[in-house]
Write a protein that binds this DNA or RNA. Sequence first.
RNA 1: GGCCCCGUCGUCCAGCGGUCCAGGACGCCGGCCUUUCAAGCCGGAAACGCCGGUUCGAACCCGGUCGGGGCUGCCA
Length: 472
Amino acid sequence: MSVRVRIAPSPTGYVHVGNVRAALFNWLFARHHGGVFILRIDDTDVERSEKVYEDDIKEGFRWLGLDWDEGVDAGGPHGSYRQSDRFVHYREVAHDLVVRGLAYYDDRNPEELEALRNRATAEKLHPNTYIRRPAEVASSGAIRFSVPQDQAVTFHDLVRDDMTFEPETVDDFVILRSDGAPTYHLASTVDDVDYGITHVARGEDLLSSTPKHILLTRALGGTPPTYAHLPLLFGPDGKKLSKRHGDTSLKAYREGGYLPEAMLNFLSTLGWSIGSDRTIFSVEEAIAAFDLADVSKGSAVFDLDKLAWINGEYIRALPVDRFREAVAPVIAAARGSDLDGEQWSIVEPVLPLVQERTRFLTEVPGQLDFLLDEEVTYDEDSWARVMEKEGVVDILDHARANLGALDRFDPEAIERALRAMLEALEIGAKKGLQPVRVAVTGSAISPPLFESVAALGKERSLARLDAARSKL
RNA sequence: GGCCCCGUCGUCCAGCGGUCCAGGACGCCGGCCUUUCAAGCCGGAAACGCCGGUUCGAACCCGGUCGGGGCUGCCA
């Protein structure tokens, strides 16, 4: 039997990195086995589902390269589909279950139910004791599934091993809401059965719902898939990853200067490992090595520092032209317009130098501004630290004179000229070059100085020196 | 409260009864390199939660305990 998996995110918010990680593991598993990967839009919660979020899920997956299969085969649709398109079907299934005596209508309100549940619990009876009732009693309201009480539900989870749930620990659960919409349990299970899903890899938060799904599957005449409950992702404080921890939406990373390959690599290391001595690896390698059975049980902290490092590794590994491609939209966004040909040619020589020292694409525009803006904006802190010192005037004057005398204005010539200045003034490079850097780039932190000056050009460099000099 | 899951450096992983006085990576600290910042290189601190048991031998198996987490919804 070939592998068919699905990821079923709810379009009730921007797609969360935890869901993306689950999607990734499903995708890796499918690709490893040459199986089918289905994107199921779980919009059963009609109230909270929105189209923008559905679009966000798809954009995010495309960005990462998590391609879902398109088309249809004997097993059902391959590609993405919405569960809201199948509401009629779910309703029929639920009604059929009632007819067969496996589910019943329930028109009571939550307070009533709670009271009944408490009463049963107080009498040390099964919580469903006073809740369950024959189909004749009500013919409207929600539909609740009658959990069979004859035997324990057992299953082998690929990551948790053998699991057993006693029947009395699983309550009769609603499968169809009183407004006719299916609950997650129903829709998800029906689709898994209808479309021949072979493996369900999802967050551990659904582990205790699994017996419900298995029981429902059997009632539907299906064979339960193999489950794999993935460890949850936590924030740095050890609590479930949420908004409090900063950005949890994939969108934030997509827009925050991260490379999709880096994100994919990082997510792959959360709960899984390709080997004891490797952290950086390609998707192809991950596909070749991946197995759900190797996923670890413990929850993982989403460590932004590590992600940043991985991102930097990927950025540095990019061929320069790919780096340029990746950074172009980021620069355009930061500056409000695309760079023109002339601007690119100014920036070109320092691009590899900038690339070496960036961890996030979003840092790049700031490193290039001094080349693109007419006027430099001095970083206050830098100015205070390096310019407001004894001897800076001399340094700028000498630098200006030496640079002004140059015919060829390339990095090598510039270096010779500035080193000559250092010798004349009998000062070290550290002390003598920083003022020049701040004057030319506006900051104490910049790409390497000689290349930066060369890229700026003689005329503009001299003007920058003058401008700084006049401020002293 | 009930049911369930988990527990190796701060963090992510490796380890699947002896080769582990526990290995790699991020981060951290120190050094080198150096025109800043990075990168790179070298070195360092840093963990098997605890208690029993099984065994010749336990990070690995079992029990308990403590700690963390999930579920307990007409959310998923």
